[in-house]
Computed example of a mutant assay.
Amino acid sequence: MQHCTPEQLALAALREPLPADDAAHLAGCEQCRAEVASLQRAVDAVAVPKLAAPGPPVAPPPGVWDAIAAVTGVSATPRVDAVPAPVSVVEEPQDAEVLPFTSRRRRVLLVAAAVVTGAVVGAGAIAVVQNQEDGEPVTAVALAPLAENDASGRAEVIEQADGSRVVEVDLDAPELDDGYYEIWLIDRDVVGMVPLGVVRPGTQTVELPAGLDLEQFPLVDVSVEPLDGDPTHSGVSVARGELDA
């Protein structure tokens, strides 16, 4: 079996469309989906305000320069004035509008490179919101609170003009101090799970993986995830509903 390449997995983690054959493979391959989920967690994490807080630049430890010298054979030390001084950062108000980058392809290449190579995304990163074209509603579901949780909302599947599908999520839930919400599609046995991405209280849109069968994964689930880097479901679900696919 020919699995998706690292570049394709990175693009899938960014919720970019893949060629039909690769999208079909991803939809049926648990190994590739797990890789995408792991990469997607890193991409989505930068959209969490707590992780995107701006901070001053930090000088690299001395071991970095020693390692460079060992590999390149060039002995050099950075100038003292080469380390940027901390700058003042004006924090944007929480309700400020987040605009998309001018070049969508440039964003894809930059973030895909960071994901594939394991680069660390610097402080001050912002969430990128793509403009969604008008589409045709396919199905919708009310998200009912589970146990004694206060979370609730609504999820609507929309098919866009190009045939891709998105889920518009309206989440009514309290803000979290030490974690974040994530939306999933789950099968009726609550065994197979497909992560769709990080969501916040309010209305937002997430993309559905191409070729995903909603009849196989009809449960829309909202979970609370800790900031531990684990891409699997935490087991703490706060709201859920079943799509009428």
Score class of each variant (00 low, 15 high):
Phe101Asn: 14
Phe101Ala: 15
Thr102His: 11
Thr102Asn: 09
Thr102Ser: 12
Thr102Pro: 04
Ser103His: 13
Ser103Gln: 11
Ser103Asp: 15
Ser103Lys: 09
Arg104Met: 07
Arg104Val: 13
Arg104Leu: 12
Arg105Asn: 14
Arg105Gln: 12
Arg105Pro: 05
Arg105Ile: 13
Arg105Cys: 09
Arg106Pro: 04
Arg106Trp: 05
Arg106Phe: 06
Arg106Glu: 14
Arg107Thr: 08
Arg107Leu: 10
Val108Arg: 12
Leu109Asn: 13
Leu109His: 08
Leu110Tyr: 08
Leu110Lys: 06
Val111Lys: 10
Val111Trp: 04
Val111Thr: 09
Ala112Lys: 02
Ala112Tyr: 08
Ala112Asp: 02
Ala114Arg: 09
Ala114His: 09
Val115Asp: 01
Val115Glu: 01
Val115Phe: 00
Val116Thr: 13
Val116Ala: 02
Val116Asn: 05
Thr117Leu: 08
Thr117Asn: 01
Thr117Pro: 05
Thr117Cys: 12
Gly118Thr: 10
Gly118Ser: 01
Gly118Trp: 00
Gly118Arg: 00
Ala119Asp: 09
Ala119Glu: 04
Val120Ser: 11
Val120Pro: 10
Val121Ser: 07
Val121Phe: 13
Gly122Lys: 12
Gly122Pro: 06
Ala123Gly: 11
Gly124Asn: 09
Gly124Lys: 02
Gly124Met: 03
Ala125Tyr: 04
Ala125Trp: 00
Ala125Val: 08
Ile126Tyr: 04
Ile126Lys: 11
Ile126Met: 12
Ile126Cys: 07
Ala127Ser: 08
Ala127Gly: 08
Val128Glu: 14
Val128Asp: 03
Val128Tyr: 07
Val129Ser: 10
Val129Phe: 12
Val129Leu: 15
Val129Asn: 11
Gln130Ser: 15
Gln130Leu: 12
Asn131Thr: 03
Asn131Val: 01
Asn131Gly: 13
Asn131Arg: 08
Gln132Lys: 06
Gln132Glu: 15
Glu133His: 14
Glu133Ile: 07
Asp134Tyr: 10
Asp134Asn: 10
Glu136Gly: 07
Glu136Phe: 03
Glu136Val: 05
Pro137Val: 03
Pro137Asn: 03
Val138Lys: 10
Val138Ala: 04
Val141Gly: 03
Val141His: 05
Val141Thr: 07
Val141Lys: 07
Ala142Ile: 11
Ala142Thr: 13
Ala142Lys: 06
Leu143Asn: 00
Ala144Cys: 04
Ala144Ser: 10
Pro145Val: 03
Pro145Gln: 04
Leu146Ala: 03
Leu146Val: 11
Ala147Ile: 00
Ala147Lys: 10
Ala147Asp: 08
Ala147Ser: 12
